[in-house]
Structure formats: C-alpha cells, structure tokens
Simulated scan of single mutants.
Amino acid sequence: MQPVERAEYEGIDYGWVMQTTFVLTILVGAPVVAVLSAFVTLESWSARAAFAVRVGAPIWFLTAVAVALYARRTDAGDGSSTDGDAASPDLDGGDATSADDNVDSDPTAADTAVDETEPTGPTDKSPPTEEP
C-alpha cells in the first residue's frame, strides 16, 4: 500500500476560504439578488443575467474578503491543532515518518524488515483432514 502524502502549511487555508465563500455567497447572495430584483424591471433573460452578475459580484467579493480576514484572524480551516486542542488521530496507526525518519518514499531496510512476532507459516485455521 502506498503511503498517504501529507503536507503541513502555515497561514491561510485558501481551499477552506474558497469553499466557505462559495457556500456563504449562495446562502446570502441568492436571497439578496432575488429581493433586489423585485424592485427592477427586467425585460429579458440577458437583462436578468446581467443584473444577477452586477449584484452578485460585489456580494461574492465582500464575502471572500470577510472569510479570508476571518481565516487569518482565527486560523480557521487550517486543520491544525492548537495547544489546548487534542492532537489529531493518526488513522494508519503509525507515525508520519518511518522508524528511521526516512521522509522520502524510498523504502529502507527498516521499512521492509520482517516482524518476527508475526507467524510466517500458513494461516489456514481449519482442522486437519485425514487422507485415506
């Protein structure tokens, strides 16, 4: 099985900012555009689309700036733990690096060593059969 690549970034998690901006813009922006469109006469579909872009673009921009500032101020979405938080669980049951602290993907002798505590023989647990 190939090891899972892990990366540690410092600063703003821009993926989280983009996803949160997208969701908040839809949740907040769609109702705002709908309410504001009630006060404007929109004759054609192209006029409706242009109106949605003219009103939606500033909403998107303001939401993105607000979310980015929030992420910078609170370290939101970075996935890291702070001193008071519990450490994140290690799902594969081992450390991020191998026993010899080999950080590249080339296996070493320590990575491929046979564990002497595991049985190396057949693992068939069925009772023995007698031959005639």
Rank of each mutant, 00 (worst) to 15 (best):
E118V: 12
V55C: 11
D92N: 12
D13P: 02
R6Q: 10
A57R: 07
K125M: 15
D100A: 08
M18P: 00
R6E: 08
I26Q: 04
L36F: 14
A71V: 02
Q19D: 08
D95C: 05
S88D: 04
D75R: 11
T25M: 03
T21G: 04
L42V: 07
D115E: 10
S80K: 15
D78Q: 08
G11N: 11
G15M: 05
S88M: 07
T41G: 12
V28Q: 04
F22D: 05
A49T: 15
T97C: 12
D90N: 12
S105K: 10
D90A: 15
A30N: 02
L27H: 06
F51I: 02
A86H: 11
T123N: 09
T108N: 02
A30H: 00
T97L: 15
T25F: 01
T120M: 08
V28R: 05
W60K: 01
Y9G: 08
P132Y: 02
A86Y: 11
T129F: 04
P122E: 12
L69E: 08
T20L: 07
V114K: 05
R48P: 03
G84F: 09
S88H: 15
D106P: 00
P127R: 09
T82E: 12
K125A: 15
E116L: 11
V23G: 00
P107E: 06
Y70T: 04
E130Q: 05
A30V: 15
G94Q: 14
D115Q: 07
E8H: 15
D13R: 03
D85P: 01
T120K: 09
R73T: 11
V23E: 01
R6T: 08
M18W: 10
V53M: 11
A113Y: 01
G11V: 06
T21H: 00
T41V: 15
D92T: 12
A113Q: 00
V35K: 05
A57Y: 10
R72N: 05
S37Y: 10
F61A: 14
T20P: 04
L42P: 02
R6D: 07
G77H: 03
D78K: 07
G121T: 09
D92W: 14
D78Y: 02
G93Y: 02
L27C: 13
F39W: 10
E116N: 03
A47K: 14
D101A: 12
V65Q: 09
M18T: 09
V33K: 03
L24A: 08
V17L: 04
L42N: 03
E131D: 07
V32L: 12
A96R: 07
I59G: 01
A86P: 10
G77C: 02
E10P: 00
S126K: 09
P128H: 02
V55R: 13
A87C: 13
T117V: 03
F39M: 09
G15E: 04
A57E: 05
D78A: 09
A110S: 07
T123E: 10
P89I: 13
D111F: 04
T108Q: 06
V23W: 08
K125G: 15
A7T: 14
L69Q: 07
R72H: 05
D90I: 14
F61M: 14
T112R: 01
D78F: 03
I12H: 01
P58N: 03
T82C: 04
A57N: 06
D104K: 04
D101H: 09
L24T: 10
D101R: 11
S81F: 12
D75F: 05
W45A: 14
E116R: 12
D83S: 11
S105P: 00
A109I: 00
